[in-house]
Structures are given as C-alpha cells and as structure tokens.
Design a protein around this nucleic acid. Structure first.
Lengths: 190, 190
DNA sequence: CGTCTCGTTGAGAGTTTTCAATGTAAGTGG
DNA sequence: CCACTTACATTGAAAACTCTCAACGAGACG
C-alpha cells in the first residue's frame, strides 16, 4: 500500500481510487538514504525523481570556488530532482543528497510517462506541482532582489519552520545566499 | 490569420492545422500598447496573459522603499503575465507594462481553459512553456546565489542581446539586482 | 579519548549602496 | 523647429553591507 504521506499529496490535487493507487505503487521504488548519501550527482543523466517520506533531501550546485548553493530543500511530502535533467535529457548540473537519514520513493521518468498514459489524472497532478513550483521559484527570485539578508532569513523561518532546528545552520546560509559566519552574526544582532 | 510570430511559437512545440489556428485566433484579442502603458496593475485579479508580437513588456514588483525589481522581460515571441494570479485567482503582486511601443495578443484564462478542452495539444504547448519557465527561473535563482554582479550582467547580455541597446540600462540593473549607478561602474571598470 | 563538524566572534578587506552633482539624450508643448 | 522639461547615464566620496580569514569552544560520533 502507498505510504499515507504520498497518498495525501495526491489527494490534495486529484482523486485516485484504490486500484489506481495500487497501480502507481507498482511503478515506484522505496529506498532508505543515510545522511550524506547521494540521490543524484551532477553530470549524470537524471533518471529518477524522489518523493520524501521522512528525513530531508537537498538539491545544490557547487560553484567554481567550491561553495555549495542550495536550490531546494525537500522535507517530508516534497518531490525533488534536477528537473532540467529529468525532463529534458540534459546532464544534471545539480547534486541531490540527504541532510538527514531519509526514506524516499523514487519514480523514473520512463515510468512517469507510462503512468501519464494510463492514469491521465496523474499528469494533472504533476502539472499542478510544476505550476506551483514555478510560482514559488519566481517568488524566490523576487525575494532575492527585494529583501535584505536578514529579511530573507526571517522569511525562510516562516516557510520552513520544521527545518530550523533539524538541519545545520550553514545549510540555511547556503540557501538564502550568505556565508555561515554572516548568518550567525545576523541572528545575534537582533 | 494568426501572426507568424505566434504561429511559429506554437510550431516549436506542437503541430496545428489551419482550422485549429483559426479557432485559436477567435479566442485571442489584438492590442497595441504605447510605451509606459500598463497591461496589468498589482492588486488586480489577472484575467489575461499577453503574447508579445513586437516591442517589449516587463513584469516587476515595487518594494517597500519604492524600488522596482524586474521579474521578466518579454520581447517579441514571449508570453508574460502574473502567473500566480492568472492561474490561481489570487490578487496580482506584479505590474506589467510596456517598455517600448508594443503589439500584443492577449488570451483570457477563461478562453485558455476552453481551448484546452477543444484543442488538447494546446494544453501540451502551455505545459511545456511552464516547464521551461520553471527551469529558467531556477537557473536564475542559482545565478543570483553563485555569480557576482558583473557576471550576472555578462550573462544577461548573452541571454537578451536584443535588449542591450533597446531598453534603458536602469531596467537591466533592476533585473540583475544592482543599482543603476553600480551597473554603470561595472561596465567601465572592465 | 581523539576527531570532525559546526556555530560563534573579531578584525580587516572587498562589494555595493547612497547621495549629490553633472552632462547628455529624449520627449513635449508652443 | 525651438525652448523647456524630464529621464537617463556617469562619476566621486562616504557609508553600509557582506565576506574572508583566523581563532576558539561545543557537541556529535566513532
């Protein structure tokens, strides 16, 4: 049976009967990731997309100076992959790994496309997720343009309250776009 | 008959016959915008999405200090709207206006949904555009995290070469996230 | 117990902004 | 077409913001 967290994610956008959920389950694989274990390395072709049941994954790139920059956190209930590579057959420019011990389902692009044919509602589900991702990605672009580092941190705390005390603070710094040292100073000054 | 620029945009992703193009045309409206004329004001509900035939539109927000921050430029061949408002029935947080005298088609969300039913290929066209927008929006988030102001300007010049000498430089500054004065200094220092 | 990662702090350097001044180009009304 | 106004680009100096580098302490983990 599908894990309730994934089942609930579907239910937010579409209605599936038991037969359909069972069929979907047949196309998914379950896997546990230890902290720091990779789901996807840059420069590979991304076959799979991950849905996080428990724990937390992140996607990030490494710049020419060796610094990591985080594009997305995926705590419980989120999908994560390198979407450009997953959709477009391009080499991945992102790494995806686990920040905490995690449990995930993963779905291959091949199986996803098969499921789109067999259960058209599922295409709708992913279309809506894509639209929502676009909205939040654009909001993040605006936030980076409009907000000070301090305000970006405050906003981060509102959006991801469950992450504040579960992942290292330096990961949050790599998401909002400041150095770990500077984030530390931001928090004290008040 | 549909303007060739829009027709070509469709043709990049889907195949439409003449009957289908004619039908689509019936759901579009054509309009000219003078420079500085608004297509959409923030705090309104966004009914329409615009496809630019000639000229250039932009979408932007105004922060609490009164500064403008540009989310998107739409020269010839691009769609532009406040997608959150257009899709989600939310109030717009963006303004969209013309940087140059422009010619546009516009399509209401209502008509778009009707067309999705009548010409399913069109839903595919917009799904692909949404996916591509997501990819480029995420790339821009990464660019803001990774690149210096100077490198962001250099990258901008590569992506939008047709804009460099047609729109005011201060608009480019508002897109890459620096003040007009600082962009001016960046360009001279070399 | 030792090792590694992380968070904090401080001083100095680099970056970007602010503010003010100037010159030029572009738009407007007569 | 000219005179006037407005918008824009540039420059400089000072201030504000953010980073770098180095040091230290605390906690996690084997």
């Amino acid at each position: 049976m599908l894990h309730s967290i994934l089942s609930n994610s579907f239910a937010k956008h579409i209605k599936l009967n038991q037969t359909e959920e069972d069929k979907i389950e047949g196309f998914l694989k379950f896997r546990k990731l230890k902290k720091k274990q990779f789901f996807l390395h840059e420069n590979e072709y991304t076959i799979n997309s991950a849905f996080v049941i428990s724990g937390c994954l992140r996607s990030y790139s490494i710049d020419k100076n060796g610094f990591e920059h985080i594009l997305q956190f995926a705590p419980s209930g989120w999908w994560i992959t390198d979407i450009n590579s997953f959709i477009g057959q391009n080499k991945s420019i992102l790494n995806v790994d686990a920040l905490l011990d995690s449990e995930i389902y993963f779905l291959s692009r091949e199986n996803q496309l098969i499921l789109f044919d067999e259960i058209p509602k599922l295409e709708r589900y992913f279309r809506i997720l894509t639209e929502n991702s676009l909205v939040s990605s654009r909001q993040r672009v605006l936030d980076n343009l409009e907000l000070s580092a301090k305000d970006r941190y405050i906003k981060f705390c509102k959006i991801y309250p469950e992450l504040i005390n579960t992942i290292p603070q330096k990961q949050i710094a790599a998401y909002i776009g400041v150095t770990p040292e500077f984030l530390s100073k931001l928090k004290t000054e008040n």
